[in-house]
Amino acid sequence: MRVNFTVNGRPQEADDVWEGESLLYVLRERLGLPGSKNACEQGECGSCTVRLDGVPVCSCLVAAGQVEGREVVTVEGLADYAKQRSCGHQAPEGHDSHTGEGTELSPVQQAFIDAGAVQCGFCTPGLLVAADEMLERNPNPSDADIREALSGNLCRCTGYEKIMDAVRLAAARQGEAV
């Protein structure tokens, strides 16, 4: 089947999609957006978290056919998404993400690097999408709020301490910026 939807502000079309394919598979294998990760494919780790019409979901549990006509934001589009949010308006269309030095990162992405919250990094994309969404709703989270909001994202490397530091740092920087 064919599926048309919007990813990171760009219209996308996927063809010859097998009906049992997940949104995760379509993003990773058909649209060249492997940032969303395939750690468990059973909704138990959060590494494939994307925003579907603004709401964080596990993309492994969304059937590809269910996203027809809907809007998806992945980690690849997170910096632009955060930028548009801070500018307070919707940019007309997304553009391709860039790599390496000089890349403009969202506050939460930068905080993950600065706080040492990234080790193997496989959980990182999902955590970033979830953490960014939490900070959007709750700019001054308590530690317990952060833990609750991120309780659907497993990390095996860090013991979560540096992830807590990163989210606190992002919240603090966000507070300063306002």
Binding site: P34, E76, L78, S97, D114, L128
Partner: peptide
């Protein structure tokens, strides 16, 4: 010092073995 692969890992562009195509 910060990880040299940090930026790639937070933007989703770091190529893991399952991302190969």
């Amino acid at each position: 010092t910060l990880r040299p692969d940090g930026t790639l890992k937070v933007t989703g562009e770091f190529a893991y073995s399952s991302d190969m195509w």
